[in-house]
Simulated scan of single mutants.
Amino acid sequence: MKITILYYSETGNTEKMAMFVKEGILSQAPEAEVELMNLKDEDSMNVEFLNASEAVVFGTPCYVANLCWQMKKFFDTRWDCKLADKLAACFATANCMWGGADIAIQTVLQHAMTRGMFSYASGAGNGRPFIHLGPIALRDELEEKADLFRIFGRRVAEKTEKYFVKH
């Protein structure tokens, strides 16, 4: 099973949370192959791996109550990245609680569905902690939110394995 974590991180906050998601994925599915790809670093983009992935977890910092423009540009221009029929999930980082991170996550998932992906948000069906759309970490709470992001990663791995891996 292959899972791509595709994110943009300027300050390192979103990247740190991507690492926690990866830890969660690997705790649930140790045999999984997981690659981190930061849109800031073109060299980290492994299109072949992304195209072979069953799931893509997107991570965006929240700017002006929305996703970062780099992620929007990815959805608009990277047609070499085959996203259709994969599981999509998303997390966000923000500077403040009312910064619009939930809008950023919804927008990413909307773009993912437009590209033919299946949206997964964990939701309330998995019990506590509830992760309705995707986890959010504020810049002053990154370490405090680590377990939430690991749980999210585990849940993404569970669903990817359940729905996309042939047994």
Results as ranks from 00 to 15, higher is better:
3 I>K: 00
120 Y>T: 06
15 E>S: 07
19 M>W: 15
122 S>Q: 12
81 C>W: 15
149 F>T: 03
78 R>F: 06
22 K>F: 11
132 H>D: 14
105 I>Y: 09
83 L>G: 00
39 L>N: 01
32 A>L: 08
104 A>R: 10
163 Y>F: 15
142 L>F: 12
131 I>V: 14
36 L>V: 01
94 A>P: 01
104 A>S: 14
158 E>H: 09
36 L>T: 00
32 A>S: 11
7 Y>M: 01
22 K>C: 02
134 G>P: 06
129 P>F: 13
33 E>N: 09
9 S>D: 00
70 Q>A: 06
76 D>Q: 13
125 G>E: 14
12 G>R: 05
148 L>M: 09
86 K>Q: 07
72 K>A: 07
32 A>V: 06
62 C>P: 05
127 G>V: 13
101 A>K: 03
44 S>N: 05
29 A>G: 07
157 A>K: 01
153 G>M: 01
128 R>H: 13
35 E>C: 03
72 K>W: 10
149 F>H: 07
54 E>R: 06
159 K>C: 04
71 M>Y: 00
54 E>W: 06
67 L>Y: 05
146 A>R: 15
88 A>W: 13
31 E>C: 04
133 L>I: 13
107 T>Q: 13
42 E>T: 08
123 G>F: 14
36 L>K: 00
94 A>N: 12
105 I>D: 02
83 L>T: 03
117 M>S: 08
65 A>V: 07
101 A>G: 07
144 E>R: 13
98 W>S: 06
120 Y>M: 08
122 S>V: 07
25 I>M: 07
13 N>R: 09
66 N>S: 13
137 A>K: 04
14 T>G: 03
87 L>K: 02
88 A>Y: 11
25 I>Q: 11
3 I>E: 00
136 I>F: 11
50 L>T: 15
59 G>W: 00
167 H>A: 10
121 A>Y: 14
25 I>L: 10
103 I>W: 13
110 Q>D: 11
12 G>Y: 07
84 A>C: 06
94 A>E: 15
118 F>A: 12
106 Q>F: 08
62 C>M: 10
18 A>W: 03
17 M>Q: 12
73 K>N: 12
82 K>H: 10
13 N>K: 09
51 N>L: 12
31 E>F: 11
80 D>E: 15
85 D>S: 10
14 T>V: 08
151 I>G: 00
99 G>C: 09
121 A>N: 15
106 Q>L: 09
163 Y>E: 14
34 V>P: 00
79 W>C: 05
98 W>Y: 14
146 A>N: 11
35 E>M: 08
143 E>W: 05
74 F>A: 04
18 A>P: 00
137 A>S: 14
97 M>H: 09
116 G>A: 09
57 V>C: 01
60 T>Q: 03
85 D>W: 15
96 C>F: 15
63 Y>A: 01
75 F>V: 05
1 M>Y: 03
82 K>Q: 10
41 D>Q: 09
29 A>N: 11
79 W>A: 07
3 I>N: 01
140 D>S: 11
126 N>D: 15
88 A>C: 10
149 F>D: 00
12 G>V: 04
164 F>P: 05
41 D>E: 12
62 C>S: 11
56 V>C: 03
150 R>Q: 13
44 S>K: 06
12 G>M: 11
53 S>I: 02
8 Y>L: 07
122 S>Y: 06
79 W>S: 09
75 F>Q: 07
45 M>S: 05
70 Q>N: 07
102 D>F: 15
42 E>D: 12
105 I>F: 11
9 S>I: 00
85 D>V: 04
121 A>C: 15
